[in-house]
Amino acid sequence: MNPSASVEVYWLILPLVIAISLVYSASRHESWRRIWWHSARLCVWIMGLLVMATAILLLINTQA
């Protein structure tokens, strides 16, 4: 697999994170306003953590 293809694979995390945050939020609340709000926050949190972890791993990897 070429490097550009392996980078494109990272985009496949997005639908997964969106689905996880929507289903989790829907199982917590009954009101749509709360479901959307909770889901948006959760999505941002998960993506933020993933981006941070990836950045740290890349940093470690390039330092070695």
Binding site: V23, A26, S27, H29, E30, W32, R34
Partner: peptide, 21 residues
């Protein structure tokens, strides 16, 4: 999670909102 929601309802008790069934 969805099965549990169907069995026992949502986890949190939201305030009544017009869009909630």
């Amino acid at each position: 999670l969805a099965i549990y929601d169907a069995f026992d309802g949502p986890a949190y008790q939201d305030e009544t909102s017009p869009d909630a069934p």
